[in-house]
């Protein structure tokens, strides 16, 4: 067991780094929660976990797709990042259409007076009794950055887990039989498990809603990152041992 951990020390560092990146990325995603679903808060109208999972798992899938053709780490990370960014950007643009053309409100932030990117006034457009609504430009940009970080994090975790399995003598994706993808299956499930743990911890940190990097709550990120760091160490140890054992049976 200890040998497995020592042999895979680099992979473990990748996993922990990935977990920390995922945790940090959640702080960038404009999560509005239930209030945003009623256009009473800025952000996308669903919870952190759903958004992080949606973007992160898309990143995982696109990273896995890239792994089919190459084992070049930067390319895999780029593929994961682009996948997650596309997913979160599409979610945000469609959400904006719904807010603007469906609900009929102006995308505006209640946390800042002027949008730091476009310099447009925000406070004039915030409806009374709401915490802003829709997705102003700064939130959109912040969300795409969140997708980038989350996608890299997810891809890094998945790549590292696959590497652990390859070292233990397993093969990934070469067999075409239904039961031939043990490594892919277990690495994906561990990556998803680690992803969910690291998506929920920051969501408790931000109290469920955040507008993006201009939100005052964003400055709380070190707390979540430290927590995720510790939690991911545990998960990484457990995951590396479990996957190494796969080579023994």
């Amino acid at each position: 067991m200890i040998d497995a951990l020592l042999d895979n020390i680099v992979s473990m560092i990748y996993i922990i780094l990935g977990g920390v990146l995922i945790s940090w990325s959640v702080h960038f995603v404009p999560v509005g929660g239930a209030p945003a679903a009623m256009a009473q808060a800025t952000g996308i109208g669903t919870g952190t976990v759903q958004l992080a999972a949606g973007a992160g798992l898309t990143g995982l899938v696109s990273a896995g797709f890239m792994m089919n053709v190459t084992d070049n780490l930067p390319l895999i990370l780029a593929s994961g990042a682009v996948g997650a960014m596309i997913m979160i950007a599409v979610t945000m643009i469609v959400g904006t259409w719904v807010y603007v053309y469906g609900v009929g409100c102006v995308p505006s932030s209640a946390k800042v007076k002027v949008d730091p990117i476009t310099k447009y006034r925000q406070d004039l457009y915030v409806s009374q009794g709401t915490e802003g609504h829709g997705l102003p430009t700064v939130s959109f940009v912040s969300g795409v950055i969140g997708g980038l970080l989350g996608g890299i994090g997810g891809a890094l975790v998945y790549y590292a887990l696959i590497e652990v399995g390859l070292k233990a003598g397993l093969t990934a994706g070469t067999s075409s039989s239904v039961t031939g993808h043990e490594l892919v299956g277990i690495a994906a499930m561990f990556a998803i498990g680690i992803f969910f743990v690291n998506a929920v911890i920051p969501s408790y940190n931000i109290g469920g809603t955040i507008e993006g990097f201009h939100d005052p709550k964003w400055k709380k990120w070190p707390k979540a990152v430290i927590s995720s760091f510790v939690a991911t160490i545990l998960c990484a140890v457990v995951a590396v041992i479990a996957i190494s054992q796969l080579g023994v049976i």
Binding site: V49, F195, G208
Partner: peptide, 15 residues
């Protein structure tokens, strides 16, 4: 929790 109940179910299954 400050966020939706589903989050705690997801962390349960993640762990």
């Amino acid at each position: 929790l400050g966020t939706g109940v589903p989050s705690i179910g997801m962390i349960a299954l993640g762990m």
